[in-house]
């Protein structure tokens, strides 16, 4: 699915980009220029969760469609399973994001579990104990930090775009991905820029990543 069907053209995703750049808690800024092949190995970071700054106190729908610029149709039809703070979401208009929230987005899932966890689905009563109750907004309009997780088809479709904008991740998580996929990464990494300076991709393994916050930006080469 191309970005044309996912994002509203008028918004692009500048607000999101600015939010990340405003973050002053970053220890390392790392930009990688990769061939397309190794990019999916970093989807694990997106599934494990990355932090962004956004306006909180808004509904999930407002966050995704107004702040991120995701099209209503994509949210309605493609993002079929949503969790806010581990609870399943049925109504994206009446469930609100708070500072510190964790929001996870998934496509429709198979089987009875998929049907049960689906937003507003027939089988929602089967998981009513973990369903998100309707609530009222708080901290409206304030900026806060939220953790976003992208799964399955959603990470495949939104992942490259989020990576291109830059995501904030733990240094040890970045190292773990590179170490476990070293051959694929090294073969496909064309350029690495750490804190504004070029760095040999092979040297990335030697960097001390433990305990550091990394603003990771991944761009694909044109070929």
């Amino acid at each position: 699915m191309s970005p044309h069907f996912i994002f509203r053209a008028a918004y692009s995703w500048r607000p999101f980009n600015e939010a990340i750049i405003l973050n002053n808690m970053i220890n390392v800024k790392l930009t990688l220029i990769l061939e397309k092949t190794p990019i999916p190995i970093f989807y694990q970071l997106l599934s494990k969760g990355f932090i962004i700054h956004a306006r909180t106190g808004c509904s999930i729908k407002e966050l995704l469609c107004e702040q991120f610029g995701i099209k209503n149709d994509y949210l309605d039809k493609r993002i079929q399973t949503i969790f806010l703070d581990n609870k399943t979401v049925d109504d994206v208009k009446s469930t609100f994001i708070r500072n510190g929230s964790t929001l996870a987005l998934s496509a429709a899932m198979p089987g009875i579990l998929g049907a049960t966890l689906r937003k507003g689905g027939w089988y929602a009563p089967m998981r009513r104990e973990i369903s998100h109750d309707k609530d009222i907004p708080s901290d409206t309009g304030k900026k806060g930090k939220i953790t976003v997780k992208l799964f399955n088809l959603i990470v495949r479709e939104l992942g490259p775009l989020f990576l291109e904008q830059g995501i904030r991740v733990k240094g040890e998580d970045f190292y773990d991905i590179v170490a476990r996929n070293e051959n694929i990464f090294m073969a496909g990494c064309k350029k690495a820029i750490k804190d504004g300076n070029d760095i040999d991709p092979e040297k990335l393994i030697e960097v001390e990543w433990e305990g550091k916050q990394v603003l990771l930006q991944i761009k694909a080469t044109m070929n």
Binding site: F83, A107, M109, P110, G111, L113, L117, F151, N152, R156
Partner: peptide, 21 residues
């Protein structure tokens, strides 16, 4: 699900989702 999700990831596509739940 049957045309995209299962072919792409198999049934193990549920791991992340169940864990999040």
């Amino acid at each position: 699900v049957t045309g995209e999700g299962l072919p792409a990831y198999g049934t193990n596509v549920l791991t992340n989702v169940l864990n999040e739940a």
